[in-house]
């Protein structure tokens, strides 16, 4: 108990405060998106990401909005809907909107904050710039991105097959 208190006092005095981009980087590092990419590189990239806070019930984006990139949830919960059908409920550490990292298309679903939440956006132009800066890491990320999207496609195919068999 004493040790814990002491460590917390000394820790509070001398511990370097964790910068927001490091928190963002640690969250991204746990996703399949950034697997195999060094944390330091993700931290550098995270410096250019965009922190946004949303109130409960606020739309993060609407179906038909011009999409610019993916977002990771730092805190709070969100829901992905198409009309009134709920596609997914996401919480801290989950990411969404990754199709916009590859395609310059409009969003195909609504994203709504269920609670107050904090998100970090990673935009397509930043991925393009990063590709120029560190092509070897960027190519790893695009392979990961392709894997994530391929899994989604397989999942969608399975759902479609199940529906048809009914």
């Amino acid at each position: 108990m004493t040790t814990a208190n002491t460590s917390s006092i000394w820790g509070t005095l001398f511990r370097k405060p964790v910068a927001w981009h490091q928190q963002v980087a640690s969250k991204w590092a746990k996703t399949p998106f950034f697997s195999g990419i060094p944390l330091k590189e993700i931290e550098k990239l995270s410096k250019n990401m965009h922190l946004r806070t949303f109130q409960a019930d606020e739309y993060i984006f609407h179906n038909g909005d011009q999409g610019a990139g993916a977002a990771i949830i730092l805190s709070g919960e969100i829901e992905i809907r198409v009309k009134k059908t709920v596609l997914a409920q996401l919480s801290e550490g989950d990411f969404f909107g990754e199709v916009s990292l590859v395609l310059d298309e409009r969003r195909t679903a609504d994203a709504i904050a269920l609670t107050n939440c904090e998100l970090a956006f990673f935009l397509r132009p930043e991925l393009e710039e990063w590709t120029q800066r560190v092509p070897h890491h960027a190519s790893k990320l695009t392979t990961n991105l392709a894997r994530v999207l391929a899994h989604r496609l397989l999942h969608a195919n399975q759902l479609l097959a199940q529906r048809r068999s009914r």
């Binding site: 965009h50 946004r52 949303f54 909005d65 999409g67 610019a68 956006f121 132009p125």
Partner: peptide
């Protein structure tokens, strides 16, 4: 760019 409201932030960046 952080001052741009949530609604238009992605479009503004594009």
């Amino acid at each position: 760019m952080g001052f741009i409201p949530n609604q238009g932030f992605e479009l503004a960046w594009l």
